[in-house]
Design a protein around this nucleic acid. Structure first.
Lengths: 137, 137
DNA sequence: TCTACGGTCTGTAGTTGATACAGGCTCAAG
DNA sequence: CTTGAGCCTGTATCAACTACAGACCGTAGA
C-alpha cells in the first residue's frame, strides 16, 4: 500500500465514488465532458480527487436535468473563473424555464389522462372512454 | 379532378392533414405503427381517410406522452375491439403514474433550481450560488 | 414543348445520452 | 499458478425521429 493508492483511482473506483456508471465515464471522456485521464504504463486510466469532484459536479447537474450541452457550458464557466455569476445565472434561468415548461406540459397531460381514465367503466366490454377520447376528431 | 382525388392522398397531404412530419410517416410504417399503404403504378404511396384517422390517433396519443410501444398496444386494442375497457384502463393508468412521477421529479428540480438562482447576485463577479451549489459535496 | 418546381422514392447517417457486449489483456490474492 | 475482478478498444443497441443524397416523376406556366 504505497502513497499513490490514496489518490490513484481506477475506473471502477471513480464509478463507485460518484455513483456514475462505469461505461458512462468513458462516454463522458469521448464527448469531452471529462478530460482524458493520465494512463499507467500499461495504459490503464488513472484518476484522482479532481476527477471525482468534476464528475460529481456533472452528476449533480444531470440530476437537476441539465443537458450535457448545458453541463459543458457550466463546466466552461467553472474552469474559467474569470466568468461572471451573471453568465451562470443566465444558463440556470434558461434551464429553469425549460423545466417549468415541461411541468406545465405534463400537468396538462396528467389532467386529460386522469379525467379520461376516470370515465372508464373498467368493464370487460369493448367500449372505452380512453379509446373514444383518442379516436374523436 | 376525378373522384379519386377526394380520398387518394400523397404523403405530403397526409402530413398536412395530421400535422405529422413527412419523414415520420415513413418511419411509422417501417416500425409498424402505420400499415404499408397501397402504391400507385409508379410506386407512390396512396393514403385514404382511414390512414388519416389512424395517424391522428397516434398523434393524439403521442401528445399525451404515450411511448410508441404503448401506442402500439393501444392500437392493438383498437384494432381488436374484442379487447376490454379494463385492459385499456390498465395501460392508461400505468402511463398516468409515469407522468405523475415525472411531474414530481421536475417539481423537485424546479424548487432546487429556483432557490439556487434566487441566491445569485447576478454580479460581474466569479462567485456564484449556482456553481457553489453544484460544487458542494 | 420546354423548363422549373415541388413532390416522391430508397437507403443510410446523424441526433442525445447513454448502455452493453465481444475479445483480449493485466493484476493481485490465495 | 490459478482464479476472478478489472482493464482495454471498438462497435452495436436503444427511442423516436430527422435529414440528407441521388434519382425519378408530374404538372403548371411561358
Amino acid at each position: 500500500m504505497d502513497n499513490r493508492s490514496v489518490t490513484a483511482l481506477r475506473r471502477v473506483d471513480l464509478a463507485r465514488a460518484t455513483g456514475c456508471n462505469l461505461e458512462t465515464i468513458r462516454y463522458y471522456e469521448t464527448v469531452g465532458i471529462m478530460p482524458d485521464p493520465p494512463r499507467t504504463a500499461k495504459g490503464y486510466r488513472s484518476y484522482d480527487d479532481a476527477h471525482v469532484r468534476r464528475l460529481k459536479f456533472v452528476m449533480r447537474s444531470r440530476d437537476l436535468g441539465f443537458s450535457l450541452e448545458e453541463i459543458r457550458g457550466l463546466l466552461g464557466l467553472v474552469d474559467d473563473r474569470s466568468q461572471t455569476c451573471a453568465q451562470v445565472q443566465t444558463v440556470a434561468e434558461a434551464h429553469l424555464h425549460d423545466v417549468q415548461a415541461k411541468i406545465a406540459d405534463l400537468t396538462r397531460i396528467e389532467r386529460v389522462l386522469s379525467e379520461t381514465v376516470a370515465r372508464c367503466t373498467g368493464d370487460a366490454a369493448p367500449e372505452c372512454a380512453v379509446i373514444d377520447a383518442l379516436l374523436e376528431a
